[in-house]
Amino acid sequence: MVPVTEFQKIGVGLSCFGIFFILFGVLLYFDSVLLAFGNILFLAGLAFIIGLRRTAHFFFQRQKLKASSFFLGGVALVVLRWPRIGMLVESYGFVLLFKSFFPVAFGFLGTVFNMPFLSTLFSFSGSSSSVV
């Protein structure tokens, strides 16, 4: 098992708070302050989890430069109080940045659903015969 450092624990907390503020900002009709705060917390959490050098290397690889510019440009638009356009640009950049990770995540979810306990749990939740 890989040991988790205190900085990584702090990073996970910052990232979770960032995602919470982003979702809360979207729920409150794209509140620019909440979205900007969420973006800053998410990026700071990412830097705490994997380190500053690896974060910079991830965002500024040659093949990911277009995606990074869209993502970071969207963050800048949100900070400059253009939340709707900024979130559209940012989400496009996010999809471009993490498109190679999506098959891995979906494969992991497929193995999770094949676990005996979870498959019985999801079979019960899917076949609800309630009339409510």
Rank of each mutant, 00 (worst) to 15 (best):
L96C: 06
S15L: 11
L65D: 06
K9Q: 07
F70H: 05
K99S: 12
L88R: 06
S119C: 04
G18A: 04
K99C: 10
Q61W: 06
R81M: 10
V104S: 12
S128G: 12
G51E: 07
G73P: 00
L121T: 02
S127F: 15
I50F: 14
G51H: 03
G38M: 04
L77H: 06
V33H: 14
G25Y: 00
G107K: 11
F17E: 04
F20D: 04
V79N: 04
K66V: 10
K64S: 10
L46P: 02
V2C: 14
D31T: 09
L23D: 08
V2I: 13
A47Y: 05
V33N: 11
L34K: 02
G107Y: 11
G45Y: 03
L41N: 02
F20Y: 02
F7G: 13
I85S: 14
K9S: 06
M1N: 12
L27V: 07
L23W: 07
V89A: 05
R62N: 10
T55W: 00
L80H: 12
A44P: 02
F71V: 04
A76R: 00
L65I: 12
R53A: 05
F124G: 15
F94E: 06
L46K: 03
S68I: 04
C16T: 12
Y92L: 14
I49V: 13
M115G: 08
E90I: 08
S100P: 04
L28V: 10
F117V: 14
G110P: 03
T55R: 02
S32H: 12
L28N: 10
V104Q: 11
V2R: 14
V78P: 00
V12M: 01
F106A: 14
D31I: 05
V33E: 11
L109N: 05
L14V: 06
F30P: 01
F98Q: 03
S129K: 08
F59K: 00
K99W: 15
T111Y: 14
A44L: 10
F17P: 00
L65Q: 09
S100N: 13
K66T: 11
F124Q: 15
R54S: 03
V33F: 15
R84Q: 14
A56S: 08
F117K: 10
P83V: 05
F30E: 01
Q61A: 09
F58M: 03
T111M: 14
L109Y: 14
G38Q: 01
M1S: 15
V132E: 12
R53T: 04
L46W: 09
T120G: 03
W82S: 08
L88N: 08
I22N: 01
F122L: 05
G25M: 02
F7V: 15
A44H: 02
T5I: 09
V112M: 15
C16E: 08
M87W: 05
S119K: 05
M1L: 14
V78Y: 03
N39D: 13
F94S: 01
W82V: 08
G110Y: 15
G45H: 00
L41D: 09
A36F: 03
Y92V: 15
F106T: 11
S15I: 09
R62T: 09
V112C: 12
F102P: 05
Q63K: 05
V95D: 07
L118Q: 04
H57Y: 12
S127P: 07
V12C: 07
G11W: 01
F20A: 02
L43H: 06
G51C: 10
S123K: 11
L88D: 09
A36I: 02
